[in-house]
Design a binder for these strands. Structure first.
Length: 636
RNA sequence: GCCCUUAUAGCUCAGUCGGCAGAGCGCAUCCUUGGUAAGGAUGAGGUCACCGGUUCAAGUCCGGUUAAGGGCUCCA
């Protein structure tokens, strides 16, 4: 029996060999009618069918036992077939389904431009209309190599050569087009419906920058035009939350030609940033951290000693002072370590938790810069914890709890990854195994689901990464916990144990926001610029109806200010509707409309950015309400 | 860094076949003094990213540089 879990959480059981059409029929006749039933040779473990509450089919695609989406994968073959027809000399690399669509990598003399999209889409529609059966063929490895070599498909030959000697190679054919493919596929090209080519990109063959760069076409497909339209609309909506767009509109930050990757924070962005730092300091004081600040520029002897010279040089900036070589810090740890070394420490002092809002500079390649998410100068909300070996698990657990407190405060959900030893790293395998094991143990003790990221650790230790999502569902690493046996060694760190002898402490590097820049970027998209009142750069805007209310508005402003509220007045001689519109667009939590009625009653008319007109209230009452909201850090 | 695309007013963007630089928003001034998402008029605002080339003539065509956008690789 195989178990099928539907996306709505329910479970069904089926015999081993069954067609997807049969599965679909047994779940819902409606689903079956729209079904993409595939001729299928393996097991089905998941049927990604989502049926929304009113029974309409929201999205359907089948996944095979390795999680591949059949419908999109078949779409990718049809795109390849169309490209082959239009540019017969094209060589084919790979064309998998991805999250919201599919792509295919091509090697051809023709340079694709977006103008080619219409022609390719038209050819794809012709192929769909022809309704070619998609037929699976199998042949021995040697025969398959010969088959593709004759067709000059170098990449396919290379792919097959990587398969075991005795492998049976499967090919899928539709009309004149044959592709190397494990399958499965929809039974015929006519099953495909709405197709849209999305974008062009360069992509290295097999993802290595030492290989040739191929041309990748990204596209998506849906079984109904309405679903495609819906998807495109959602993309448009997501773009409206883009932190780069909102950052400009809300006056949070700018990026200028004069400093690529070096963001300028504007007054409103600074208010937000300072509030985040304030919250950070409160929480860290509670959690037993101390705070330090270390220099941005330090001499190169230090960086040799720390291993950054050998392992991180390409990402560092250098400078000279009085003929001596200095480097701008790319990480805060060496500074923190020097602070630790200022005293001889007793085991009784440990764990020692030392935080630093540390400004670091990293030379990132020009092509990777992205708004606030990926910059060349950023402030890490760093901390280094020096501890006894037996304190490791507890300390990691403490940091995980702190991270959870922060992310929950902002309403983020996150996923966790464990990154292991990279190639360019220092220390013995034994130490790495120990460190990686400790992180793993801490994760398991906490019961967190995590994904393993082979070879993605820091050069001095493995790490647990916490990832948050942006508005386009791209994920960004924010929090990280890194366990380090190397730096204490390199810097000969010590504490005096119970036995009166010197011992080596263990070190954790950790950030929670990750970087202030990236976190503000994510936060902006998460709230679509409508920050909770405690973070909002302007919490209240007073809108006097006419000049007659200006004095009263000033009094109101003074009272709110003395209550610690960030408030401003719009005194322009514009109509109230216009002032409200602007206040809404600036996503200010509260707009206070003041007319003669309010003056007479000694009140303010309150409008909330999401809830609309809340009616008149005494100023004291409003102030108390808002103060509570700010103090509770509520999301309203 | 690599592949593709883009760069015109503070912002968003038109500008056709190479022939006098445009609109809306915003801004300034004036009129309007109003009740919950855009009242009206007038005006200012430009080295068409930068450097070079072709041409009688370049925002427009060509080459280069810089920056930005979508990816790849890399990363907080």
């Amino acid at each position: 029996m195989i178990h099928i879990s539907l996306k709505d959480g329910s479970q069904k059981e089926f015999p081993e060999r069954i067609s997807l059409l049969q599965i679909a029929e047994s779940i819902s006749p409606k689903l079956a009618k729209n079904s993409l039933a595939a001729v299928f040779n393996g097991k089905v473990t998941d049927l990604a069918a989502v049926i929304d509450s009113d029974g309409e089919l929201e999205f359907i695609d089948f996944e095979d036992e390795r999680g591949r989406q059949v419908y999109r994968h078949s779409s990718s073959h049809v795109m390849a077939q169309a490209v082959k027809r239009l540019w017969p000399n094209t060589k084919f690399a790979i064309g998998p389904a991805v999250d919201k669509g599919f792509y295919y990598d091509f090697d051809t003399d023709h340079t694709f431009t977006p103008e080619d999209f219409a022609a390719i889409e038209k050819e794809m529609q012709a192929i769909i209309k022809s309704n070619y059966p998609i037929v699976r063929k199998e042949m021995p490895r040697d025969e398959a190599i010969k088959f593709f070599a004759e067709r000059n498909e170098d990449y396919k030959v290379e792919l097959i050569q990587d398969l075991p000697e005795d492998a049976i190679i499967s090919l899928y054919q539709q009309g004149e087009f044959v592709d190397l493919c494990a399958g499965p596929h929809v039974p015929a090209t006519g099953r495909l419906k709405a197709i849209k080519l999305m974008s062009l990109a360069g992509a290295y063959w097999r993802g290595s920058e030492n290989n040739k760069m191929l041309q990748r076409i990204y596209a998506t497909s849906f079984p109904k035009q309405a679903l495609l339209d819906d998807y495109l609309n959602k993309l448009e909506e997501a773009k409206k939350r883009d932190h780069r767009k909102l950052g400009k509109e809300l006056g949070l930050f700018v990026l200028l030609d004069e400093g690529p990757g070096f963001p300028f924070f504007l007054p409103k962005g600074m208010v937000l940033r300072n509030e985040l730092e304030k919250y950070w300091r409160e929480q860290h004081e509670k959690a037993g951290y101390q705070e330090i600040r270390t220099p941005i520029i330090l001499n190169t002897d230090l960086w040799h000693r720390s291993g950054h010279w050998d392992h991180y040089q390409d990402n560092m900036y250098f400078t000279k002072i009085d003929e001596e070589d200095y480097a701008v810090k790319p990480m805060n740890c060496p500074g923190g370590i020097l602070v630790y070394k200022q005293n001889l420490h007793s085991y009784r002092e440990l764990p020692l938790r030392i935080g630093e809002m540390g400004l670091v500079h990293r030379h990132e390649m020009s092509g990777v810069l992205h708004g606030l998410m990926r910059v060349r100068a950023f402030t890490q909300d760093d901390a280094h914890i020096f501890m006894l070996p037996e304190q490791i698990i507890d300390e990691i657990n403490g940091v995980m709890n702190l991270i959870d407190t922060f992310y929950t405060q902002f309403g983020f959900s996150y996923h966790v990854e464990l990154s292991t030893r990279p190639e360019n790293s220092m220390g013995s395998q034994e130490q790495w195994d120990l460190a990686t094991g400790a992180l793993q143990q801490a994760l398991e003790k906490k019961g967190l689901d995590y994904k393993i990221n082979e070879g993605d650790g820091a050069f001095y230790g493995p790490k647990i990464d916490f990832h948050l999502q942006d508005s386009l569902d791209r994920t960004w690493q924010c929090g990280t916990i890194q366990l380090d046996f190397q730096m204490p060694e390199k810097f000969d760190l010590a504490y005096i144990g119970e036995d009166g002898e010197k011992h080596r402490p263990v070190m954790i590097h950790r950030v929670i926001y990750g970087s202030m820049e990236r976190f503000i970027g994510i936060l902006t998209e998460h709230f679509a610029g409508a920050f909770p009142a405690w973070l909002a750069p302007v919490q209240v805007r007073i809108l006097p109806l006419t000049e007659r209310q200006h004095d009263y508005a000033e009094q109101t402003l003074a009272q709110l200010k003395s209550a610690g509220i960030r408030v401003e007045i719009d005194k322009r001689s514009e109509k109230i509707g216009y002032k409200i519109r602007e206040g809404q667009l600036q996503k200010i939590p509260y707009l206070l409309v003041i007319g003669d009625k309010e003056i007479e009653a000694g009140s303010v008319a309150v409008r909330h950015r999401k809830e609309g007109d809340l009616g008149a209230m005494a100023l004291d009452e409003f102030t108390a309400m808002l103060q509570t909201e700010i103090l509770d850090k509520s999301i309203r």
